[in-house]
Design a protein around this nucleic acid. Structure first.
Length: 637
RNA sequence: GCCACCGUAGCUCAGUCGGUAGAGCACCUCACUCGUAAUGAGGAUGUCUGCGGUUCGAUUCCGCACGGUGGCUCCA
């Protein structure tokens, strides 16, 4: 017998006399509420199975099925059921890894052929059988050597590799029915606890994320605490599809792609070109306000210059080259080189710094065909790019200013975002000291602005570390937009200098930065964010005049001219059609204001506005309409 | 680039177990002059993504290419 105390978190302890007791019994003893919805438990802060044996003092915290942690456990357990089902249906398949992810789980298998969509129903059926059998998840700890021998005997070489790489004394395995998997746990008590899952898709995935290693076959699924939540999740996905910019873009006359032009190349139709113009105009104003100067370099530059900068060595696979008069030229994948030459064209004093060159620079990058996607990944795009060349002392302040710039701009669009710092990659140039200096400069600026960020080791640009700003699309996928990159190397390679107070030459540092990132990608995110219904200040068409009969067309055209003169982006629908049809079409185009002009309005020389949300306003004169729209633009809502 | 799926009229989609295709909307014509999400009638519309192969015959089967979607890897 053994004396110890157990208690629920935030409850007084209870003394226990027993050899040991399972966590589940302990929870019952402590009268934890809704015990049937508890699927695991935290014992002294560590997540454990309900079958975990408690033999010392313990603080318990039940984990409920529908909590964040509970769902993660449930999803992980579901992935084990899937692995078991796959092994039963395809005994030759080798298991690898199968974690829980956002909304669900996946499991990677190595099989003689990749799995196909049509395999999924069979696997689901088998999973239902396993769930119905309500098999217990039984945990067993064993020495790594024993586990290696065990998985070797099964021919599961991937598991053997995993255990060997773990390098731990002991590992744990979980068995349900005849299926045993290496796993840290915890799990739900038995397979019967899985109530709602669905296998969604198959995909290829490299073993350990390394494209030089074997291509495995991945099966994705989603799992929820109950059927209702699963259904809601699938509904949400349907809703998200309606925001898809790849669909909305062509529908709203924003852009299109053409097979005959090529993959990853966007053609901007009039509405999209107008939207770009508005954004770019906004950007130029915001940059001028913050002490940037405009610059503009050519699209193609001599290959020798790309060799000097290190792009040829480090970025060649992503570049396009061409010959002109027997000279090799590279089409620019980045805008920095011209800016470097601009800086170097004059003697610079410390008094001139920082120099901030801004360019809406169009770049071409050879992205691999499989990664192209709508506006999010293209081969030609325009960056709102700037290069800040400053003294090392100014670096911190400049980075902070850029972070503020990002904050201001994202607030205007109503975006929330995540920050990430990326450090030195394997393929890179420069000294370790410079990399440390640059990385610390970024970290310090983040700390000074009280920003929370994640660190992404080895993911920096080849010339320096960076801060990335990530926005989400309708499906919750993250896309890098703004980025701030420190660079000590290019100033060195281009021998950029400034004359210091001491009359000596000194080396400046450089920041590469974008705020929106790529205009294309940013517009893609914008479309999904607003579901195509842009606020008035951005809307390519802000108002459309809808005449009731062709008696009203003459005044309709006059009104259009009047509005155009005040820079309102206005169209007129003068077709001989019913008003309701014109309203419907304007509504589908998500135009913010419809201006109805019938006999009454013609007589009174104005229009009756109808807003995109269906709200009808009362009669307004041209001047009233102008000030209404202008005000809305000013507040950018 | 790799894995899976997909590609029929401008759009959304049907169809052909191999015998050269169809609907709705859009488009054009005519009538209606109309008040807030589809007026009616008539008409035209396709190298069934492309190129090869199998076949008497391919939009359908096979291969390759091009393009797209979802992942992996990569990246703004």
């Amino acid at each position: 017998m053994n004396d110890f105390s157990i208690r629920l978190k935030d409850q007084p302890p209870i003394e226990i006399q027993a050899e040991a007791m399972t966590a589940l019994d302990a929870l019952r003893h402590l009268k934890a509420k809704a015990i049937d919805r508890v699927i695991a438990v935290k014992v002294n802060g560590t997540a454990c199975d309900l079958s975990y044996n408690i033999a010392t003092q313990a603080v318990l915290e039940p984990i409920y099925m529908d909590s964040k942690e509970g769902l993660e456990i449930l999803r992980h357990s579901t992935s084990h059921v899937m692995a078991m089902a796959v092994k039963e249906l395809f005994p030759e398949a080798k298991v690898t890894i199968g974690p829980a992810i956002q909304d669900g789980f996946y499991y990677d298998f190595d099989y003689e052929r990749p799995f196909k969509e049509e395999d999924l129903p069979k696997i689901e059926e088998k999973m239902e059988e396993i769930i119905k059998a309500d098999l217990f998840y039984v945990r067993k700890d064993m020495s790594s050597q024993k586990a290696i021998d065990f998985f070797k005997s099964l021919g599961e070489q991937y598991k053997v590799e995993l255990i060997q790489d773990l390098g731990a004394e002991t590992v744990s395995v979980y068995t349900q029915g005849g299926f045993t998997d290496l796993c840290r746990g915890p799990h739900v008590p038995s397979t019967g606890r899985i109530k709602a899952f669905h296998l969604t898709k198959v995909a290829g995935a490299y073993w350990r994320g390394d494209e030089k290693k074997a291509m495995l076959s991945r099966i994705y699924g989603v799992a929820f605490a109950d059927r209702k939540e699963l259904k809601e999740h699938l509904m949400r996905l349907e809703e998200a599809k309606k925001r898809n910019h790849v669909k909305l873009g062509p529908q709203l006359g924003l852009f299109n792609t053409y097979d005959e032009i090529g993959a990853g190349m966007i053609v901007w139709h009039p509405n999209g070109s107008m939207l770009r113009h508005v954004l770019e105009d906004f950007e130029i104003r915001e940059h001028l306000k913050r002490g940037y100067e405009l610059a503009k370099g050519p699209e193609i530059l001599k290959t020798d210059l790309w060799k000097k900068s290190g792009h040829f060595e480090n970025y060649r696979e992503n570049m396009y080259f061409t010959m002109i008069d027997e000279q090799s030229y590279g089409i620019k994948p980045m805008n920095c080189l011209s800016h470097m030459l601009i800086y170097g064209s004059e003697i610079r004093s410390y008094r001139d710094l920082p120099k901030r060159y801004f360019e809406l620079g169009t770049v071409h990058r050879h992205e691999r065909s499989g990664v192209l996607h709508g506006l999010f990944r293209v081969r030609e795009f325009t960056q709102d790019d700037a290069h800040i060349i400053c003294t090392p002392e100014q670096l911190n302040g400049e980075i902070k200013a850029v972070l503020d710039f990002v904050k201001d701009v994202m607030a205007i669009f109503g975006f929330s975002y995540e920050l990430e710092i990326s450090t030195r990659p394997a393929k890179s140039i420069g000294t370790d000291e410079d990399w440390d200096l640059a990385t610390n400069a970024l970290k310090n600026a983040m700390a000074d602005n009280n920003l929370i960020y994640e660190v992404n080791e080895g993911d920096g640009a080849f010339y320096g570390p960076k801060i990335d700003v990530k926005l989400s699309d309708a499906l919750g996928r993250k896309w890098q937009c703004a980025t701030i990159q420190c660079d000590f190397t290019l100033p060195e390679r281009f021998d950029l200098v400034y004359i210091g107070k001491d009359g000596q030459k000194h080396r400046p540092v450089m920041i590469h930065r974008v705020i929106l990132g790529a205009i294309e990608r940013f517009i893609g995110v914008l479309i999904e964010h607003y579901a195509g219904a842009f606020p008035v200040w951005l809307a390519p068409v802000q108002a459309i005049i809808l005449t009731v009969t062709d008696r009203n067309n003459e005044f309709g055209e006059r009104l259009k001219k009047t509005l155009e003169e005040t820079d309102i982006r206005v169209k007129a629908d003068l077709r001989n059609e019913k008003l309701s049809l014109k309203v419907r079409e304007a509504q589908l185009q998500k135009i913010p204001y419809m201006l109805i002009v019938g006999d009454r309005e013609t007589e009174k020389q104005g229009a009756t506005p109808r807003k995109r949300d269906g709200q009808n306003l009362s009669f307004a004169t041209a001047e009233e309409i102008v000030s209404m729209i202008a005000n809305e633009c000013k507040t950018r809502r």
